[in-house]
Design a protein around this nucleic acid. Structure first.
Length: 425
DNA sequence: TCTGGGGTCCTAGGACCC
DNA sequence: TCTGGGGTCCTAGGACCC
């Protein structure tokens, strides 16, 4: 399809920007945000980037530079980021109802209907509005396809003179731009494909655009071919306007400190089942099998290593937390070995289908167990209204010995009455 | 001492069926 | 005992994304 226009809106350094919204004192200060368990640096403000800090590096390796420059460190606060993200997305719908929320900090807008107005001005208006209403800086890239809008966004962000907005639609210097950027800058070309393309002397985006279709399909599957077509201006990847149901739901986490007993591991697994089940019921689905897994710390080469996983089928697909915990604990009995220091564990709910589609087992005379359905619905309602984990199963405790570290967490400014920001006038 | 978590899609190959 | 083609379903592995 030709003649479409897409915009990709991307929140700049999203997590770090969220931490700054209610901390005006940090406006021009370096900020970094850590992964779960305060492990790695996953987001940095531009001031932190300028100091040479890198994304993905473990916190302990950056300690020196953090202390030297007095950098502000935050544990990740997904409650806050999720709420601010929702505000950004809602504000974006003022500018086009044709929107795909692509991730927590990105959205595609279909701007085809706006092709006769000054798109750069329109994008600047979007940017100003989001900053004014939500306090988050964004960049906007505009292109004939989603892939091109991603590239345009990267360009707008990279060069200060564009002020975060770049339009590549019918750009007179498109070929020059393509020859300037590397294939790795393209959405959909990751580390492995970059290596492969470079080896075959395809280095710039221009080389890729001029590559042979049959060869691309053979080497990079149909998806790679779509990427190339999109770079040529032919839109193959459409907006996904509704959020599809998840096909797998995973909950896993590293432990705050090593776990050495089966009891603790069983508690942690019960906790993950609880989380995963909540999100399963949220989409009105049931699962047909569950997988549990755990492992020791692979970075500790001198300690004994053991990792294992076990999948258990369910006779009748369901989403009832206590029964799933029982099944998970049976799986644990089958593969647990003592004498190890475990570092993480998790569960996957698979074979997910809508509640309405579930097949009952041949001899399952109850079909739907209304008592269980009502109990779990009541628990969900209470937890929704009064806050997470107000009612939990006895299979894990409130004071989780294995819980993750979050030493530097900011308040939930926007979602908890007790943590509202204070303004002194 | 300290190294994230949560997803999707595509393809090849094997098992099985008619 | 050996032979053929066509199809589906499932799974593992590999790639990608944020």
């Amino acid at each position: 399809m030709k003649n479409k226009i897409f915009a990709l809106i991307d929140c700049n350094c999203f997590y770090a920007s969220c931490e700054k919204v209610f901390r005006p004192d940090l406006k021009d200060s370096p900020v970094v945000v850590l992964s779960n368990n305060d492990g790695c640096i996953v987001a940095l403000s531009k001031e932190a980037k300028n100091l040479g800090i890198k994304r993905g590096v473990p916190l302990f390796k950056s300690r020196g530079i953090i202390e030297k420059h007095d950098i502000n460190v935050f544990s990740s606060n997904y409650t806050l980021y999720g709420d601010i993200s929702a505000r950004v997305m809602k504000t974006l719908t003022l500018f086009s109802h044709d929107i795909e929320i692509y991730s927590i900090d990105e959205a595609f807008l279909n701007l085809t209907d706006f092709k006769h107005i000054d798109l750069v001005k329109y994008a600047q208006k979007i940017k100003e509005t989001i900053y004014k209403c939500v306090g988050i800086p964004i960049s906007v890239g505009i292109g004939e396809t989603k892939t091109l809008s991603k590239l345009a966004n990267k360009i707008g962000k990279k060069y200060n003179k564009f002020d975060g907005v770049f339009n590549i639609v019918n750009h007179p210097a498109k070929e020059k731009i393509f020859s300037f950027f590397d294939v790795s800058d393209v959405w959909g070309i990751g580390f492995e494909y970059t290596k492969m393309l470079h080896k075959n002397n395809i280095n710039s985006i221009l080389d890729l655009v001029n590559a042979d279709d049959v060869w691309i399909k053979k080497k990079m599957t149909i998806k790679g071919l779509y990427t190339v077509w999109e770079l040529r201006g032919d839109s193959c990847i459409d907006l996904e306007k509704y959020i599809p149901d998840k096909k797998n739901i995973l909950s896993s986490r590293s432990f705050g400190s090593p776990v050495t007993s089966k009891k603790e591991l069983a508690e942690a697994i019960a906790y993950h089942i609880t989380l995963a089940c909540e999100s399963l019921r949220e989409q009105n689905s049931v699962c047909s099998f569950i997988t549990i897994f755990f492992s020791t710390n692979r970075f500790k080469e001198n300690e004994p290593q053991y990792m294992n996983a076990k999948t258990m089928p369910l006779l009748t697909p369901h989403a009832y937390t206590p029964d799933l915990i029982n099944t998970a604990h049976k799986a644990l009995d089958l593969i647990y070995k003592s004498g190890y220091k475990f570092k993480n564990c998790g569960v996957v709910l698979g074979g997910i289908l809508p509640l309405s589609h579930r097949q009952l087992a041949l001899f399952d005379d109850h079909g739907i167990d209304y008592k269980k359905t009502n109990i779990i619905k009541a628990i969900d309602d209470i937890n929704d209204s009064y806050g997470k984990e107000k009612i939990i199963t006895g299979a894990f405790k409130y004071n989780k010995s294995w819980a993750m570290r979050r030493e530097y967490k900011s308040p939930n400014y926007t979602t908890n009455w007790n943590e509202l920001p204070l303004v002194k006038a």
